[in-house]
């Protein structure tokens, strides 16, 4: 077990697209243990993605069970090769990132998603997620695709007007 170094902006490696995991072996599981230890070491980190520690494979960890105010969640999840197969609705919410210290901003994310993934042994996983947990998965999958939340930040001034208009229009 080891705490790994976290890549931070403006490290160009954060823009690298990660590859699918094909070998569900002990080396993968050992890496996942280190990744989890690194997540727990991070200040208030709810999730972490493998490329944040320079391991460019499609692995993320989230745990939305410890928010101050409880939210719908599936607890501690290791998601290998995660893929969102359905999106619904959107809302702004505040995000920060271990790779972008001392900065938070508002990002618009889908409110409900359907997710398929593998566990560390290669077994299939499937979830319906909403709200904060759906946000967590979208933030982490962005890392796998070389995107940071700062690429998606919107001003509060902008999102308020949009949200009000669309809500009255009955959503889309």
């Amino acid at each position: 077990m080891a705490i790994l170094d976290i890549l931070t902006l403006p490290d160009p490696a954060l823009k690298q697209v990660s590859e699918a995991v094909t070998e569900f072996d002990d080396a993968l599981r050992a890496f996942i243990a280190d990744l989890e230890e690194t997540r727990r070491n991070g200040p208030a980190a709810v999730g972490i993605a493998a490329p944040q520690v320079g391991y460019f494979k499609r692995v993320v960890i989230i745990d939305c069970s410890t928010t101050r105010k409880p939210v719908p969640n599936h607890g501690y999840l290791v998601l290998v090769n995660p893929e969102i197969t359905h999106w619904e609705g959107y809302e702004p919410g505040r995000e920060g990132c271990l790779s972008v210290p001392d900065y938070t901003g508002n990002v618009i994310r889908a409110t409900r998603i359907h997710l398929v993934a593998r566990d560390p042994n290669g077994e299939p996983l499937e979830f319906d997620m909403e709200g904060y947990e759906a946000r967590a998965v979208q933030h982490e999958i962005d890392h796998l695709d070389g995107l940071l939340f700062v690429d998606r930040v919107v001003s509060r001034r902008t999102d308020l007007f949009k949200r009000k208009v669309y809500q009255k229009g009955g959503g889309s």
Binding site: G42, P43, A44, A45, V46, G47, I48, A49, I62, T67, R68, K69, V71, G93, R94, E95, G96, C97, L98, T104, Y132, R135, A136, H139, E140
Partner: peptide
């Protein structure tokens, strides 16, 4: 509203 900042 509570602001629960997601850090990940």
């Amino acid at each position: 509203n509570a602001v629960d900042t997601y850090i990940g």
